[in-house]
Design a protein around this nucleic acid. Structure first.
Lengths: 361, 361
DNA sequence: CTGAAAGCGCTTACAG
DNA sequence: CTGAAAGCGCTTACAG
């Protein structure tokens, strides 16, 4: 597959498309619209911003002129005169983007419906210098609102570095009580979710439940806490935590270690991708799921029902969480208008085929 | 899991964070920096834009004042006076975002390195009205550059609706020759990739290869064309195309139909997620992979090596493609400076465990 | 190498 | 209900 790729670039087209640094001279401005409609620019501005006290006649004349000229207001000019951009900057780590694109989608959907633009700042390192550079680039005095996805250290570092004066909302881990007090925030209660999943496994008859943890923004993630709490209240032994990253590969490595341990008959995985790797390691070791070992994931990604076997997992509503992020931010940016607050769906345990009673011995 | 979720919002914090519509009054401007450094605003501007002819002494004084005041230039003011924003707007369908977040990451990485902001416009419908609304929202006279991911109909519709005068680059399907002529574009040559994968299966001894196609922006996708070309040149029978969307679920449905067909001994799937569903359908039908049926995917997603069995697939370099998108756009926005053009890696066939010679009968 | 003037295209605040 | 003036905070174009 050697000559298989091409970055094609047609020079004529490029020149036709752009090249000049300034906006195209022919572009109509608000004055052109005003002139055509026979009103002042001020009135055009009022129509643009759907100011109520404009007579129907002039409104229509203005609207007509706008369509006639295909006029589009300059965002830069608006932002400058208003002092704040009507946009939302989403800051999230690249891993979070990979794992939960639905979160970005949810924010975009809500923001768009309210007429806000979405800007994205991907964080690819938790190092303060890298995060500071991102903040420097993304935050200026006209920045609208910021949503920080602070599920991991990248996000938390960014959250803490947002300059004062910029409206900010955070999506946090349930275990992050510190930031919950400091920032308007939205949370997916995965502590309860982990607790429920663990209880379910215990209820099936497993002596204990092992846990493969994904990285957390806090010393002990909400999932780990819920898992521990369930074991403790059942007076079950608390096995050593197995750590992984977010990837199937790291799940595979964790799974190998667990497959070698005959006491591991039930495994709660930090996410579905990790569970995929764990399932594979178990298969390689000749341990059958769910007969020998039960496995539970987190997220309910689209592929989960088609794992081998179909994965029992905790469904997390990332789309709804995205909606909530914006709903919380909206009133800080735009005092007028109704601000319906949607609510993320509660995490729910989806039972499929990777869980069963342990074999009698 | 009932009380499992919470949209928490601490009112005091909100008030402290924002609420006022205009930028915080205390924010320093370029004049404050100028005054502190004892120079004119013009000179500050020169330092900000790393204009070469500034004496080292004054440059340092200015830099010092900037740090002293924690000055951040107003983006809106810059964009307005320059006439163009230093930003890239990425337009892509929500499905594309879900399937290839790496593409967005690649664009972000390159854009960021060049000091550009990334804005995202997610398209969730191919209907012209929906796409037009997106364009209206995203394109104004100061819009910097636009990257349209036009792998599907959503993207193509958007591409065609970009107003003239806005620099635009497209990521296209290899089968989309029309747009390739009209727009500067980047392509992943999946025609060759599909051809190679099909030939590989044929070379294993399969009489023919079935194909589960994902939606395309064109009447016949590059993957379908490559697949057909390989069959034709081998004088193999060309089976009816099976269509699916991008999801594992749709792959599962397609797989059910194929599982019922004993002549289907080799299946080329439009992407890895679809392959996951197909594998599951085959398993349910009691057909073993790769003994009874060989399966090949497209993308090489992180989970592919952990499917059951590990998936043979065509690796596609979406991250590199993202880099190339920006590299192509960059010179249209910024005439100065070097513009290294990276190149996407060629698609490559990754052979794992879902492919084998057909069983003798 | 540095600066004074004008302007980018809107909106805010004030009149009428 | 509508408008004339001033200004948002930078950069461009012109001088020196």
């Amino acid at each position: 597959l050697t000559p298989a790729t091409a970055a094609h670039h047609d020079p004529d087209v490029t020149d036709a498309q752009g090249g000049s640094w300034r906006a195209v001279p022919g572009t109509p401005g608000i004055r052109d619209v005003a002139r055509l409609a026979g009103v002042s620019p001020m009135t055009v501005s009022r129509v643009l911003n759907s100011y109520p006290k404009v007579s129907e006649t002039t409104r229509h004349r203005v609207l007509h002129a706008i369509r006639e000229l295909d006029y589009r207001p300059s965002r830069a000019a608006r932002d400058l005169s208003r002092g704040r951009s009507r946009s939302v900057t989403v800051m999230m780590s690249s891993t979070t983007l990979d794992v939960t694109p639905a979160l970005l989608r949810g924010i975009d959907e809500s923001a768009r419906a309210a007429g806000f633009h979405v800007e994205i700042g991907i964080l690819d390192s938790p190092r303060p210098t890298a995060v500071d550079a991102a903040i420097d680039r993304l935050c200026d005095p006209t920045t609208g609102g910021v949503v920080v996805i602070a599920f991991d250290r990248e996000g938390r570092t960014a959250l803490h570095a947002i300059p004062p004066g910029i409206p900010v909302v955070a999506a946090l881990e349930a275990s992050n009580h510190t930031d919950r007090r400091r920032y308007p925030s939205v949370v997916l209660d995965d502590r309860i979710a982990a607790l429920t999943a663990t209880r379910y496994l215990l209820g099936l008859g497993h002596r204990t439940v092992h846990h493969v943890a994904i990285p957390s923004s806090t010393t002990s993630s909400a999932r780990v806490q819920g898992w521990r709490a369930a074991l403790r209240s059942a007076a079950a032994e608390i096995p050593e935590l197995v750590t992984a990253s977010w990837s199937p590969r790291s799940g595979h490595e964790a799974g190998r270690r667990l497959a070698a341990d005959p006491r591991a008959t039930a495994i709660l995985c930090g996410n579905d991708n990790v569970a995929l790797g764990v399932l594979h390691a178990l298969r390689e070791a000749g341990r059958t799921v769910p007969d020998d070992v039960s496995v539970v994931g987190f997220d309910d990604i689209p592929g989960a029902p088609f794992f081998a076997p179909p994965l029992t997992t905790v469904r997390l509503d990332y789309l709804g969480l995205g909606h909530d992020c914006f709903a919380l931010l909206h009133p800080m940016l735009d005092a007028t208008g109704p601000h319906p607050v949607p609510r993320v769906a509660a995490p729910s345990l989806i039972i499929r085929d990777t869980t069963a009673r342990p074999l009698d011995r």
